[in-house]
Design a protein around this nucleic acid. Structure first.
Lengths: 348, 348
DNA sequence: TTGTAGGCGTTATCAT
DNA sequence: ATGATAACGCCTACAA
């Protein structure tokens, strides 16, 4: 009953010896149908006879067949993989929450996520783009905008759908979902003014978005008559210890400051830790303002006043936009400003 | 001078109009060599003449060629992609640090990481395995062991290299790099005994590893004559607020407890927050012990006594083992116990 | 409803 | 050192 097999006959029963290596042709042989019928039974079950479908189904479980999306993708040039490129895979960053919702939303639609770390150097980034493009990802989500013009041109030339997330820029490569970091900084400065603080200071991370917020803060503060806002510079990604060190530095130079706008919630927690240890009260002596509204912000003592970003929504919208575009639909709103809100709690 | 092109002639000069769409055949044509020579010049430069290599190089930049690893992978059955399956993509988890070093190590060797979220349900996990296997990943790194026997059999049947990370189990699917959570729990119980605490309690997360540590702790405590260690149950992934809630619960039921072993550093931070807010001193009134030695552990107040795990090494070793195996070498040490250490600081 | 032929872009195999 | 040819596994035509 065995069909002649042109392959260098190994054991050659219809059921391949090496599981996971079965091909659609194997399934078809076992089911007694042609390859294309097996293909249809799997991918378009409505157009094959019920009996055929069942035979194929059974052959699939018998052979342990797992489709090869590489082969399918070669023909259709759709890999059903989306690249997600983050500045750094660090815990404590609100990026990861967006990555999570992105992954979940995409998984529900049959897409997988290829993760890449952009790093802070141009070289790495170029190589990373090469790496994902050569794997024919169907789209790219960039956490953080593209700032270099050559890179922007390059991505445009490649022609893959791209979503830039987190930053709102005037020159998106393709699609964008984010908010204005400068506006967020300005909003915090206005809040500080409204609350009547007199000596503001900042802890700023060496990362474009933090710098933008600092700039927005300084500009708005200037409008209220406060110029020369002192700033402590820290490294990115931000850590609790940077908050402590930055606070110590600011306190030494400006003993009379009464509020600190921090680069992140983690930094804010560090600031609070440092202040409390020095016997200063938060917010009575020095107020602390965070950024991100991470999970823990509401539960620390005092509860953190911070800028809330809807990371989950950023991830979901990025996925949705990408999938709209991949479905060939015109993307209703290719540039989305999700905004932010200041959550007033107890720390300032 | 134009070769006849069988394709539906668009503009059809040797340099394709659509960048990123050039194929190896285009490159070969421009360079005036055969496709296979172009392939070799790129993938195996040592075996072609220097002059040829240069011509091909130039043709590549002229055409904007980006290799199609899908096509190459179809033939060579090597996708140069590794799946990394984590329980959950959450910030405060030490998994992400391992994911980071895994990604970096693999990237340096030309591999990309496909990220997947296992979730806490079997269904999801099965579908996830399907998703990555059908994309023909070269290997799988599982953060957290496989506990279900059918799943273990399934992975073994598929025959892809698998690394289970974080847990040490007696029945690894393939390779493993981790440590014994039960031993870590026991070590903490011994530490507690050595330090002379009398009334220990635990905050335990609904997640197998935390449960294992709790078991190890309870067993070792029993050996020192302490039975019935009270435990507060919290959800996974762990959060700061769970630490507060768990502490409140324990305090209500066991007002005389003098040390709490927490499911994670984040939970420990929550415990400290709660205790301090109630006017209790750490460690004088109640000591707090963490798990993970996350980045912030050393910088909180009081500095956290905790179990240190070398997450970075877990990621790196996972990558190394996988690459050894993929290179066809026998893996020197397919099961690695990386151990842990208790870092004594100020919290207990 | 089912089948046949051909091709997606690359690399393995076997020549030259 | 370089080429011609044939797969790799699937799916889109087009037939039957």
């Amino acid at each position: 009953m065995q069909a002649k097999d042109p392959k260098p006959a190994r054991t050659s029963p219809p059921i391949p010896a090496t599981p996971g290596k079965a091909t659609l042709a194997d399934v078809a042989r076992v089911a007694g149908v042609s390859t294309i019928t097996a293909s249809r039974a799997l991918g378009n079950p409505t157009i094959v006879a019920e009996r055929t479908r069942l035979k194929v189904q059974q052959a699939v479980s018998q052979t342990g067949y797992v489709p090869n999306l590489l082969a399918g993708g070669l023909k259709s040039s759709r890999s059903r993989v989306i690249a997600c490129l983050v500045p750094t895979i660090s815990s404590g960053s609100s990026f990861m929450l967006a990555v999570q919702s992105l992954t979940e939303t995409l998984a529900a639609a049959g897409y997988q996520v290829m993760l890449g770390q952009r790093g802070y150097q141009q070289d790495t980034e170029n190589a990373l783009i090469d790496a994902v493009v050569s794997r024919r990802v169907d789209g790219i989500v960039l956490m953080g905008a593209i700032r270099s013009a050559p890179m922007r041109r390059r991505l445009q030339a490649i022609g893959i759908p791209v979503v830039e997330a987190w930053d709102k820029t005037r020159t998106p490569v393709d699609m964008l979902v984010g908010f204005s970091h400068e506006a967020a900084g300005a909003a915090m400065a206005n809040y500080v003014h409204r609350k009547g603080y007199r000596q503001a200071a900042m802890i700023v991370a060496s990362e474009p978005r933090s710098a933008l917020r600092a700039r927005g803060f300084a500009k708005a503060a200037a409008r209220h008559g406060h110029t020369g806002i002192p700033a402590a510079q820290i490294d990115a990604p931000t850590r609790l210890r940077h908050g402590r060190a930055g606070t110590a530095e600011l306190l030494a130079l400006h003993p009379k400051l009464d509020v600190i706008f921090c680069a992140s919630d983690l930094v804010a927690l560090g600031a609070i830790t440092e202040l409390k240890q020095r016997g200063l009260r938060v917010p009575e002596d020095v107020a602390v303002l965070g950024f991100g509204d991470l999970d823990f912000a509401v539960d620390i003592d005092p509860a953190l006043t911070t800028v809330q970003i809807d990371s989950v929504e950023i991830g979901r919208r990025s996925a949705d936009m990408l999938m709209e575009k991949l479905a060939g639909k015109p993307v209703a709103e290719p540039v989305v400003d999700l905004g932010f809100s200041i959550i007033e709690r107890d720390s300032g």
